[in-house]
């Protein structure tokens, strides 16, 4: 509500820029938001099933981005790809998703599974440790330099003009990111809703003990959840690299933080909530950067998060936590 008033106010009183500018920001925000939403899904799925804030998730996405970059470089780089561009992009996504998926599996197996019955604080600290380990390993192995995907060189600088040449502009790459994210999300919803695994996952997240008694192996379900969530993160990492071009070892920290914000705002543990939250955080960030000074955008995003937490701790689409004794 407040958000709507602010947006209206900003648009209405912004003398020179008008609605085209607003729509342009919105489109950019949706692109950013779809990436955040993919990252948020990983946080939310893991929280839903383990009640664990997996701080390392942003860094898994970062590693996905690095794997994608590695594939791109191995196959000739953006200017002279060795295989057709479509195949190359597909290759990047598949390898990055598999790589980060298996990384997620490994993290779950070695950092979180031994702590299944430990006090709640233990896996959180372990998660901080994993995040730190991943970031600094990448720093150790690949250095602190920023790397450029040069995604526009690879695909195209062109795009679609909505409403004439002075209107809103969406690059083909942007369109690709939005469609890709949508497809992945639809796939995920289908997976959770209609497959045996999805059923098992929902059962485990509802009550792990009862699910175990019904013959579901919770460890397997949790591992699969980690795999799926991390693979989505890896895809988000590659998309991030393609659209925004630069990646470095801390890119996962900030993007992960925003994805995490998205998951929390939407209601952590809720899959539609993560999608909604991602979109919202992307839009708010884009609007804040557009209408306010760039250096307060992050403060606005964090401020909204803290506000949401204070007013509605369970998030927009989450269910309030019941305390069982």
């Amino acid at each position: 509500m407040l958000l709507a008033i602010w947006v209206f106010y900003a648009v209405y009183f912004s003398p020179t820029q008008g609605w085209t500018f607003f729509l342009q920001l919105t489109v950019d925000g949706i692109i950013l938001g779809s990436i955040y939403a993919l990252i948020a899904l990983g946080y939310s799925m893991v929280y839903g099933i383990l009640k664990l804030l997996n701080f390392a998730h942003g860094d898994v996405a970062m590693i996905g981005a690095f794997i994608g970059f590695g594939v791109l470089t191995l196959l000739g780089g953006p200017l002279s790809p060795a295989i057709p561009v479509v195949a190359l992009v597909a290759c990047m996504f598949v390898v990055a998703m598999l790589g980060s998926g298996f990384l997620g599996l490994a993290i779950e197996r070695f950092a979180y599974r031994p702590l299944r019955d430990a006090p709640r604080i233990a896996p959180l600290i372990s998660a901080l440790g994993v995040a730190f380990f991943l970031e600094n390993s990448v720093l150790l192995l690949f250095g602190a330099n920023y790397r450029n995907y040069d995604g526009y060189d690879l695909i195209s600088y062109n795009g679609i003009h909505l409403g004439g040449s002075a209107g809103v502009f969406v690059s083909y790459l942007g369109v690709m990111v939005i469609t890709g994210a949508l497809l992945l999300m639809v796939g995920l919803v289908a997976l959770v809703r209609w497959t045996r695994f999805g059923k098992a996952m929902r059962a485990v997240s509802f009550d792990r003990e009862a699910a175990a008694m019904m013959g579901i192996d919770p460890d397997r379900v949790i591992a699969t959840t980690f795999f799926v969530g991390s693979a989505l993160g890896g895809a988000a990492g590659v998309m991030f690299g393609l659209v925004y071009s630069q990646i470095y070892y801390l890119v996962g920290f900030l993007a992960g933080l925003k994805g995490f914000t998205a998951a929390v705002v939407g209601g952590i543990g809720s899959i539609p909530g993560a999608m909604l939250g991602g979109l919202l955080v992307g839009l708010v960030e884009s609007w804040a950067k557009g209408y306010l000074n760039g250096n307060v955008a992050d403060l606005v995003v964090f401020g909204i998060l803290i506000g949401v937490m204070l007013i509605r701790p369970q998030g927009l689409l989450g269910t309030p936590a019941l305390q069982k004794v």
Binding site: F21, G29, I31, N293
Partner: peptide, 20 residues
């Protein structure tokens, strides 16, 4: 005048603000 952060990768909003 505008500003971006050294940690930023997404410049779309900053770019949208620049008049053609």
């Amino acid at each position: 005048r505008d500003s971006i952060s050294q940690k930023d990768s997404d410049f779309s909003a900053a770019i949208a603000k620049i008049p053609s």
